[in-house]
């Protein structure tokens, strides 16, 4: 039984391992719906210090390269606001999520 990044479908005992050994990654679990506020980076003000990237507990900010502003992965960002709070130049805004 291989490990996969996708949602794992289980019918019953016949496709389960003997013990509760995992078959997939939580990466399938998009946590975007947990969010009420959404961080938006103003790239014109961003100094590319990557402090927001560093402190995200959800690893939901992607590091592209040293000359590019980090990109928030809105599939996973839970909207905790740490990135906005920690940004030294205050270039991340927490904006109301449109639903």
């Amino acid at each position: 039984m291989k490990h996969s990044d996708k949602d794992v479908k289980i019918k019953g005992a016949s496709d389960m391992p003997e013990m509760p050994a995992s078959l997939g990654s939580m990466a399938h679990n998009k946590t975007a719906s947990w969010r009420n506020l959404k961080p938006v980076i103003d790239e014109s003000k961003c100094i590319k210090c990557f402090i927001c990237w560093k402190f995200c507990p959800d690893a939901a900010i992607d590091f592209i390269d040293e000359n590019t502003s980090p990109k928030i992965n809105y599939d996973y960002c839970k909207g905790c606001g740490i990135c906005a709070h920690e940004c030294p130049v205050k270039c991340i805004d927490m904006v109301e999520e449109e639903r």
């Binding site: 990654s25 939580m26 990466a27 399938h28 679990n29 998009k30 946590t31 947990w34 507990p57 959800d58 690893a59 939901a60 992965n73 599939d75 996973y76 839970k78 909207g79 905790c80 606001g81 740490i82």
Partner: peptide, 12 residues
């Protein structure tokens, strides 16, 4: 550690 885990928002 992957994204998609079940910690609360802002969990250290």
């Amino acid at each position: 550690m992957s994204s998609g885990h079940l910690a609360c928002q802002g969990c250290a």
